[in-house]
């Protein structure tokens, strides 16, 4: 059963909720999890800098980093929820812009910690 660029083959369309043998939703699910984990590593590094410098600015920056991580966790959580449907729709503005904003916030945190 080869997928066609225009959509799913006609014989698949009428079935209620066929499980994708390629496990695409699950793989996407794991990709979101990997991304939140990678973010956590960066936040941990920022927290280490804050623990070493012990200045108000550094601690505040690390706290903002943790908030950005929570923001990404929420974004990932909502997206993973949407992936559980039979035919998940593409990412919406909330996921795309939310992810971008979280990463940019972390970059600013990294800049402040220099």
């Amino acid at each position: 059963m080869t997928p066609t660029p225009g959509g799913v083959p006609a014989d698949e369309r009428d079935e209620p909720a066929p499980r994708d043998p390629g496990a695409q939703p699950e793989r996407t699910w794991f990709a979101w999890r990997r991304t939140t984990l990678t973010f956590a590593v960066s936040v941990a590094l920022a927290a280490r800098v804050a623990a070493e410098q012990r200045t108000g600015t550094a601690v505040a920056a690390a706290a903002v980093g943790v908030l950005a991580w929570l923001g990404l966790l929420l974004t990932a959580h909502r997206r993973i929820g949407a992936l559980s449907g039979a035919r998940p729709s593409p990412m919406g503005a909330v996921q795309v812009v939310g992810t971008l904003v979280c990463v940019l916030v972390l970059v600013v945190v990294g800049g402040v910690l220099l």
Binding site: P3, G6, G7, R27, T28, R87, P90
Partner: peptide, 17 residues
């Protein structure tokens, strides 16, 4: 038209990478 959702998910994983 909306493509096969599997292509969109592959695109999403590339985005995440």
């Amino acid at each position: 038209t909306t493509p096969d959702y599997r292509f969109s998910l592959a695109n999403e994983r590339t985005f995440l990478a």
